[in-house]
């Protein structure tokens, strides 16, 4: 459905153990709210990303449930603790069943 979906994530390359780092994520997605109408007056069906999760080595950092009121190209900024070197896994769940992934590794 949604074409040209491209996740972008900004994670520092390295951190000291136990440090809190800021993570910024952006994913290009139209986030069609279901409220708009096309030129002939028919409502455009809803098509959004409804859930975003971030995990570090399998442990949850944040889990966000989204509603249609989130803007086009959903952007999130949050902080995570880094206990050891490893990988951040980012997952976005689309209404149409698609799942978009991204991983970023961090050194300690």
């Amino acid at each position: 459905m949604a074409s040209g979906v491209k996740p972008r994530v900004k994670v520092p390359k390295s951190a000291s153990a136990g440090e809190a780092i800021v993570i910024k994520t952006l994913i290009s997605h139209p986030m069609e709210s279901g409220q708009r109408k096309d030129s002939s007056g028919n409502p455009i069906p809803r098509s959004i990303i409804n859930r975003f999760t971030c995990e570090f080595n399998g442990q949850s950092v944040i889990d966000i449930t989204m509603e249609p009121a989130i803007s086009t190209n959903p952007y999130f900024e949050f902080e995570a603790t880094v206990p050891e070197a490893g990988d951040f896994a980012f997952t976005w769940y689309d209404d149409d069943g698609s799942v978009y992934n991204d991983t970023q590794s961090i050194a300690v």
């Binding site: 944040i62 449930t65 009121a69 989130i70």
Partner: peptide
Amino acid sequence: AAGNPTPGVATFNFGPLAASQSASTRMR
């Protein structure tokens, strides 16, 4: 958002590794 056609915006669930219980986003 109290005045939107559907009031829900987002729910943030913080896991054990969240360094601070804060987040930013953009909404309609």
